[in-house]
Design a protein around this nucleic acid. Sequence first.
DNA 1: AGCATCTATGCAAGCGCTGTCATCCATTAT
DNA 2: ATAATGGATGACAGCGCTTGCATAGATGCT
Lengths: 347, 347
Amino acid sequence: MTIRHETAPMPAAPLRLAEVAARAGVSESTVSRVLRNIGPIAEATRVAVLKAAEELGYVPNRLAGALASTGSALVGVVVPSLDNIVFAEVLRGVTERLEEAGLQAVIGVTGYDLAREERIVSALLAWRPRGIVMAGIDHTPRLRDLLAANGTAVVEMMDIDGAEPALDRRVGLSHGAAGAAMAAHLVARGHRRFGYVGHDISRDIRARKRLDGFAAELARRGAVLVAEEMVAGPSSVAAGRAGLAALLAAHRDLDAVYFSNDDMAVGGYFHCEANGIRMPGDLAIAGFNGLDIGQELPRRLTTVRSPRYRIGQLAAEQILTRQEAAEDMAKPATIDVGFELIAGETA
Amino acid sequence: MTIRHETAPMPAAPLRLAEVAARAGVSESTVSRVLRNIGPIAEATRVAVLKAAEELGYVPNRLAGALASTGSALVGVVVPSLDNIVFAEVLRGVTERLEEAGLQAVIGVTGYDLAREERIVSALLAWRPRGIVMAGIDHTPRLRDLLAANGTAVVEMMDIDGAEPALDRRVGLSHGAAGAAMAAHLVARGHRRFGYVGHDISRDIRARKRLDGFAAELARRGAVLVAEEMVAGPSSVAAGRAGLAALLAAHRDLDAVYFSNDDMAVGGYFHCEANGIRMPGDLAIAGFNGLDIGQELPRRLTTVRSPRYRIGQLAAEQILTRQEAAEDMAKPATIDVGFELIAGETA
DNA sequence: AGCATCTATGCAAGCGCTGTCATCCATTAT
DNA sequence: ATAATGGATGACAGCGCTTGCATAGATGCT
């Protein structure tokens, strides 16, 4: 015997296409065609079917639909983290664009762990998604093989630096160039002795690329990266604050400090503010991302803006247009969305 | 004729259970059982099957699996926004917990629009998800009907205040109580003349509930809510900053200002800092959420912490345990995770 | 009128799995 | 030795939908 909660009205009526067809007095195929808007349908039939479906509260079973037609309306989206507003914004761009096209995002979070990324993508592939959107261009060899053998549309987001060939399409920016641009800017402002405060850079590959670009450009311009302070764990305001404190304790003679991103830089900003260190007079600070919070500080943070929402949208678009473009070599496989240096008031 | 990109090795081999079965020299059912770890299987067979699957790079088709067995490993997750770190954290809690159980989240973003929520949930239902997790307890009547008739497991997150009966399970906190708690705290600190700065409260129902609870408690304690400043659009640091500026321009005699959330409050904090207004001496400010950023400010923000990650985890858990608990009335339909008032340094 | 065209609809064969039932050996018990 | 047990596997009928092909009126054209 089954006891049902009073508020649950019906035994979860397994409503099928057949029920709608019966009620509308037509065949299943006709209902299917009406619901998907394909083929020629008499207006009277269309109306009757729509009415029947509406009255019954019919919700088509997309699992069956996808199975029958090969190709689901699902898109896998893999991001490294959701602690940070950055990927949430990318995700928003992706989901919004997908929604317009009637597709849905299945998400996975890797925690910046490539092995986990491999597992997650593999699991995502089981839904035969229309495509996979993932952050970063660095993957395990096994994942590369899997995706290649699979033939699924793949978009790698955020990053475009790297020797590895693109899996399929790329939408992002050069983090090396972004780091270099900031180095150039800071040197032009007269700073010479630099420090760096970062978070766990072995995992955040793009932060490392920025640092590498930054350091290389400093060297080229005759400035020097005196010290690097790496804080364990993910980036955060607290880590940035603690990191700067530690860095300055060991090195009193720095002109400027580059942070792995804006969260960290805002932490540095607060450290300065709390300790009477004037920016940029006593110390210049700079970040990366162009987060709103940095631009609302009493002194606007000097940083590089990455078009995150746009990247998300473009990535989704790549999946959407992939069919037409499959053999169209005119479409570039890599889209560089660029970045914008924000010359704030902290450097 | 089809031209393939050189890097795409194979014509997307439609690898099926049958291929694996053939290679392992067993039947499809056996492969299926091995892969799902059910029924008695000879060790030699298991090894052979696993080997074949591995070598072929077989990824099972979950669409087919779900269709055949009724019940997909998908869970719909609906949040109002991703601009704000709050829902990103909830989402992280949900996805992490689901991942442990081998389920995957399909997400939808409503933009605080109930009509859109209805459409999104309806689309999600098409995947015959194991359950639906959504933020908020206020929905369109049609959506309530749809979910009730459908029998899907539903978890409403974040909020537990409301006359409407729960659709199924709830995990959240009382925003009215949170608002009241802050009012009590601020009055106890000696503040009497209050202001409020909020964002588009017609959409953010929970912010409204906090305000209502706050105002009611103030009245009960003999304090007065002098003015409310509503900034159009979503909450943001910029909106909080502008809102406080506007509020103070019109009302110079306020003791304390309650903000719709921490993003807004941080904006207010920056306004004070930039204008030489001392906190809490000249003006007390308080927010809601307990975001990290607020706790890293030079003066810790007075706020109420909501256990967002935990809510996400618990919500996912409700879906996971729903089966066993289906007839178990012992399990409460509503879980109140509570909140914690953080007596910071700004009030 | 007679035939080619359309337009509108139905039929039936799958899509790739799962789950039930039957089958077939090995064991162990009697 | 023979029956009773149980472990291991295969056959096969779907799950709910899509889609190519067939069918059948309704026109249009000569």
